[in-house]
């Protein structure tokens, strides 16, 4: 997948309706249920589940403007879900990047081979939240305040379809993931269906990293 270089403000990047989205190519990424048997050690209760993976594909597009990377994710789901009761779960999505060349997507990295994820979650009354996540293997993820890494998101649920954009600076300093125009990185995707009580590894995912090239 290629992130085209576009002339756009950060605000334009956030808008799912910006004209540059329609000019570029989108990709359909296949998602499948995470094999939960591998979570037996971190949660034998989660490992018993076989009912996940409600969303089987996500349509993805990427652009950057030289200082910020923007990803647009869209998928079909018959209801929009937020945590509006104690037994309810929210629709959510994440993109994940390897911070080490040998990090595995399916386990969210491993010790010494971290991954970084940008996580978006639907909220009640349109108040979505996002986190920057770092992990070194199953069950190790740490959520960081999105503001620390300048991650911003915008989302809309229209006619059975989620449209979300995630935007972050290429360089944010500190130990955060770095992106560079002209370079290629790995990228993986996850979607959680709130109506199906999906959360944690109980989700659909693309399982392995594919390539994301940032146009020079």
């Amino acid at each position: 997948m290629k992130a085209r270089r576009v002339r756009a403000s950060e605000e334009d990047l956030l808008s799912p309706d910006s004209s540059f989205w329609s000019g570029g190519k989108t990709e359909f990424v296949a998602l499948s249920p995470v094999p939960l048997a591998m979570t037996q050690e971190v949660s034998p209760l989660m490992a018993k589940r076989t009912d996940h993976g409600a969303v089987s594909s996500v349509e993805v597009a990427a652009v950057h403007n030289g200082s910020h990377l923007a990803l647009r994710l869209e998928w079909e789901t018959s209801t929009s879900n937020a945590i509006d009761d104690l037994d309810r779960f929210a629709d959510a999505a994440a993109v994940m990047f390897p911070m080490h060349p040998e990090a595995a997507a399916v386990t969210m990295g491993s010790e010494g081979r971290p991954v970084n994820a940008w996580y978006w979650r639907a909220g009640s009354a349109g108040r979505a939240t996002c986190f920057d996540v770092v992990a070194e293997g199953l069950g190790t993820s740490v959520r960081r305040d999105a503001r620390q890494t300048s991650l911003t998101t915008r989302s809309a649920y229209v006619q059975g379809r989620w449209h979300i954009t995630l935007v972050r600076a290429l360089e944010t300093g500190g130990d955060a993931m770095r992106f560079e125009a002209g370079a290629t990185t790995g990228i993986a995707f996850s979607v959680w269906d709130g109506a199906n009580a999906e959360r944690a590894a109980h989700k659909s995912a693309s399982m392995s990293f594919s390539e994301l090239e940032l146009e020079a």
């Binding site: 971190v42 949660s43 209760l45 989660m46 945590i83 199953l138 993820s141 740490v142």
Partner: peptide, 29 residues
């Protein structure tokens, strides 16, 4: 056992079961 984040633990000295609020992600397992 159920917490996939390893956020719940027994205190070693007295067996009190606590949820580490920094690690909890609200997954509710």
């Amino acid at each position: 056992d159920a917490c996939p984040k390893g956020a719940i633990y027994k205190r070693e000295a007295d067996g009190i079961v606590l949820i580490d609020q920094d690690r909890c992600s609200g997954h509710r397992f």
